[in-house]
């Protein structure tokens, strides 16, 4: 047998038994080179402990199911190579800033609530044309970064503001707002920005840039927040503002 023996330390907690405090459980497992954290998690659940809970689906870093903390770093388990750490001990913890449901599974409800609040869809008043609404290559490119967001909540877990103010909209929701506001086809009134013109919105951000570090898809939520702030200032000063 090739490969090294690793110790996986996984934080276990069961919210249906709240009196039992979260604690680490140790699993020793042989890992051949090239295996991802998710592959090992699957093997642990199959072969060692059927009660272990974690989410997973695409296993290719596009569905956003398996965000967690791996040796202190927030990332998707599916794209994290076990061998990328220079230690044989891998510590897995659930995403911060969200309640644990079981083990590595967190309750994403607050995340989705923030997402829904910003009206995350194209808003149009004009009648739709018969064919496509034209959009230049440049206008399409402008939203590219924010279109790439996979809603995995890595940024939500990393955000220092959310850890003290759960009412803050958070990086992903604001990035989504920017994705729509700066879409050349979107016609929402600029006054909608008022909803985020406060500490729960764009002014809540500390610009610590933790969200940028945590994003597995190279999205820069802070850019969206800065851009929304500029739009707001312009709108406030001139009573209008272009997109």
């Amino acid at each position: 047998m090739t490969g090294d023996i690793y110790t996986f330390k996984i934080l276990r907690y069961d919210s249906s038994v709240p009196e039992k405090r979260p604690e680490f459980q140790l699993y020793r497992i042989r890992v051949i080179p090239g295996l991802t954290v998710l592959t090992v998690l699957n093997r642990i659940r199959d072969e060692i402990d059927g009660t272990l809970a974690f989410r997973a689906s695409c296993r290719s870093a596009v569905c956003g199911s398996c965000a967690m903390v791996v040796n202190g770093k927030i990332d998707l388990a599916c794209r994290t190579q076990v061998a990328s750490f220079d230690t044989r001990e891998i510590i897995l913890e659930p995403l911060p800033n969200l309640e644990i449901i079981k083990d590595l599974v967190v309750d994403m409800t607050p995340f989705w609530n923030m997402y829904e609040k910003i009206r995350p869809y194209l808003v149009r008043n004009s009648a739709d044309p018969e064919k496509e609404i034209y959009q230049s290559e440049g206008d399409r490119k402008r939203i590219d970064q924010f279109v790439n967001c996979i809603l995995c909540a890595c940024c939500y877990g990393a955000c220092p503001v959310l850890s003290r103010n759960p009412d803050y909209a958070g990086p992903a929701a604001l990035a989504k707002l920017e994705r729509f506001i700066s879409d050349s086809r979107d016609e929402r009134p600029m006054k909608e920005l008022e909803a985020v013109n406060n500490d729960k919105g764009v002014w809540g951000c500390d610009t610590m840039l933790r969200c940028i570090d945590a994003c597995p898809k190279d999205v820069r939520p802070t850019d969206s927040i800065v851009s929304l702030r500029k739009k707001l200032i312009k709108y406030k000063l001139l009573g209008k503002g272009n997109k």
Partner: peptide, 14 residues
């Protein structure tokens, strides 16, 4: 597309 799908575009905007 009308519902917002961000398709890639040709230079003529289609």
């Amino acid at each position: 597309e009308h519902w917002g799908c961000p398709f890639s575009r040709f230079p003529d905007g289609t």
